[in-house]
């Protein structure tokens, strides 16, 4: 009896993992299948590095450089805003706050990490964009700066909570070792605790990066949507994700524009693949002889 149960369970687990793998392969296959035909029309170099995204002109232009840079700038801006705040608060919660405060702060941050991105987008459109338009006397508050700010606020809880976990799981004995050698509390944090937690911290940053570059709803709502290389942080931008979301409805299945949006998806897929690969390499335990 027990044997049969055991066998059934194993079979179910096997089938489940098989299905997962099939889904994954199907998605990747589908994206490449519908994306690659674009490159019969333009070379991948022109697609990646020229700046003329005019998908509905005739003849159409599919140079995605501005969209790629849009994703890059928005993500970079988000990380510049998020890193000091999230790492600072991780340090505070893990190393400085009283146990009581920590008990409250941890779940609050994890709650923030669970808010759907459309809520952040709404907040951006309704409150932040008008403020920024006023403060800096701009034509529009929907721009690179506002979207970086919102995305940054969105990834703070992710980076903070994972790097806080990494720091607080550094054994107490490491802190004692450092203090007993004459280090101050801050020297202990920066020279003993953070180096010991660096894998988790780097992982949290990569995760935040992945979240920011893949985020669609926020940038669709607040980035402004101009397919141009921004000349200042207050100009609108158009990342790859929001381009796909916004333009998919205008395409006809199988036309070049449709293929071009899938080609953007290939770019996103490759970026995500590499950021996961780096995470993997960072986290792989070092072999010791």
């Amino acid at each position: 009896m027990k044997g049969i149960k055991e066998k059934t369970f194993q079979a179910i687990a096997y089938i489940a993992s098989l299905l997962t793998a099939v889904c994954l392969i199907a998605i990747i296959y589908g994206i490449f299948h519908d994306g690659l035909p674009l490159f019969k029309f333009i070379s991948w170099k022109d697609f990646l590095f020229t700046n003329n995204w005019y998908p509905v002109y005739s003849p159409p232009g599919f140079g995605a450089w501005a969209l790629i840079m849009g994703s890059f700038y928005v993500t970079l801006g988000a990380l510049i805003i998020a890193l000091p705040l999230s790492l600072g608060s991780a340090i505070f919660i893990s190393e400085i706050a009283s146990p009581g405060l920590r008990e409250i702060a941890k779940p609050v941050i994890e709650l923030l990490a669970g808010i759907p991105s459309v809520v952040y987008g709404l907040f951006g459109i309704a409150f932040l964009a008008p403020l920024i338009r006023q403060w800096f006397s701009l034509d529009t508050g929907l721009n690179l700066f506002t979207s970086s700010l919102i995305l940054g606020i969105m990834v703070i809880p992710i980076i903070c909570s994972i790097s806080e976990d990494a720091m607080s799981s550094v054994p107490h004995s490491i802190r004692e070792a450092s203090l007993a050698l004459g280090a101050t509390k801050s020297e202990t944090i920066f020279k003993a605790v953070i180096p010991a937690a660096k894998k988790g911290i780097i992982g949290s940053i990569l995760l935040g990066f992945g979240r920011a570059i893949g985020e669609t709803m926020v940038v669709l709502m607040v980035a402004g949507g101009a397919a141009q290389i921004p000349k200042s942080i207050f100009e609108p931008v158009r990342p790859m994700t929001s381009t796909i979301a916004a333009e998919m409805g205008e395409t006809i299945m199988g036309d070049l524009h449709y293929n071009a949006l899938f080609a953007l998806a290939i770019v996103l897929l490759i970026i995500t693949f590499f950021s996961n690969l780096i995470t993997e390499i960072v986290f792989r335990p070092k072999r010791q002889k």
């Binding site: 450092s178 007993a180 050698l181 004459g182």
Partner: peptide, 15 residues
């Protein structure tokens, strides 16, 4: 603390 060194019960080298 620098002039009074301490060694703990469980070895605790830094990683």
């Amino acid at each position: 603390r620098a002039s009074v060194g301490m060694v703990f019960q469980k070895p605790n080298p830094f990683p």
